[in-house]
């Protein structure tokens, strides 16, 4: 497996995302630039410039027409993917930490930071895909305010029925996506440890959370029941579910502020592969010089990419040994 190194950013990566077809990869970092890459050869398609601060989050619309980004300059921007133009900017009182398009792409949620007297919120906008992409409504469709602990990450469940959010206190909540009503709130990770990432399965019926308490958990979208638990030996920044093979990839490492005081070997800057069902660690992939901030998996499960504190995106196309690996029971089941 020869990774392709993408050096489009000068500062640490915040999020990377594949589009639905898996031919494009989008990356955002603390250096204000949004990059689009072809996944087949690592060629950079272009950059989207306009943000005035660190870009925290990115998402691609399912029809590959719009790109949404949220940044520390308190704005959510929509971009025309093909031309690189900014088509819409929504202002917000505080920084945007996470954006995600709904499953059908008709709505966009954004998680805002709790700061300067403003409480953390989750806001939802309607997205219009007419001929003129700049025609977007300024009206907020929905606004959920997190009174207790601010939300750090959020996403849409299956059929866009719920909005599921991870909080800074380690709990996960389920909101009704129509009314914004809180349906469930479950303490999932150790109390007072931030949930750093939430990624959904392809059908969005379950999701994977990555916590600062060194664990990642799979929860059911329907009732927030904990289905699986993966324990690592380092705080986790990100976790992804691999389609095609039943694995999960966890990424983390020493916090950025502690990096200089630990050697690269101790820092544990590796992508860890766990078996999704058996919860065993099955391997690691080295390469980054800093903690892994974000991991994304190709929607068909043929490659994965990781973005690190070191400013690099490493894109790995899996080779045969990855696809061949099976547990005995899996092999037997496959034979039948």
């Amino acid at each position: 497996m020869r990774p392709i190194l993408l050096q489009g950013h000068e500062r640490s990566l915040n999020q990377i995302k594949y589009n639905r077809d898996g031919d494009l990869l989008f990356s955002v970092a603390k250096d204000k630039v949004v990059c689009a890459w072809f996944t087949s050869n690592g060629e950079r398609l272009g950059t989207y410039s306009g943000h005035q601060g660190a870009v925290w989050t990115v998402d691609v619309s399912p029809n590959n027409r719009l790109l949404a980004t949220g940044a520390a300059d308190n704005t959510i921007k929509l971009w025309n993917i093909k031309t690189g133009e900014c088509v819409k900017t929504w202002e917000n009182p505080t920084a945007i930490k996470r954006v995600q398009f709904s499953e059908d792409g008709s709505r966009l949620l954004a998680v805002s930071e709790k700061r300067m007297g403003y409480l953390g919120t989750i806001v939802v906008y309607s997205i219009n895909y007419g001929d003129d992409l700049t025609e977007q409504s300024d009206e907020q469709d929905l606004k959920i305010t997190c009174e207790e602990a601010k939300a750090t990450v959020a996403g849409w469940s299956y059929l866009d029925k719920y909005i599921i959010a991870g909080h800074e206190d380690g709990s996960v909540s389920q909101y009704d996506s129509k009314t914004g009503e809180t349906l469930l709130n479950v303490e999932v990770h150790e109390f007072d440890t931030t949930i750093n990432d939430i990624q959904f399965s392809p059908d969005r019926t379950y999701f994977l959370t990555a916590g600062k308490d060194k664990t990642a958990k799979i929860l059911s979208s329907r009732n927030l029941e904990i289905l699986k638990n993966y324990t690592a030996d380092t705080p986790l920044n990100t976790a992804a579910i691999t389609p095609r093979k039943d694995f999960v990839i966890l990424g983390g490492g020493q916090a950025a502020m502690d990096v200089t005081t630990t050697s690269a070997r101790q820092g544990k800057f590796e992508a860890r592969f766990y078996h999704k069902i058996f919860e065993d660690e099955i391997g690691r992939v080295r390469g980054h010089f800093g903690p892994l901030n974000t991991i994304a998996v190709h929607p068909r499960g043929v490659s994965y990419a990781s973005g690190g504190e070191d400013g690099y995106v490493r894109m790995h196309h899996f080779d045969k040994s990855y696809f061949d690996f099976m547990y005995e029971v899996e092999r037997e089941a496959a034979r039948k």
């Binding site: 020869r2 990774p3 392709i4 993408l6 065993d280 099955i282 391997g283 992939v285 390469g287 790995h316």
Partner: peptide
């Protein structure tokens, strides 16, 4: 912007 990294041997094992 794009370069190819060193080969990584990744063999998952139980």
């Amino acid at each position: 912007t794009t370069s190819v990294g060193e080969n990584i041997v990744f063999r998952p094992s139980r």
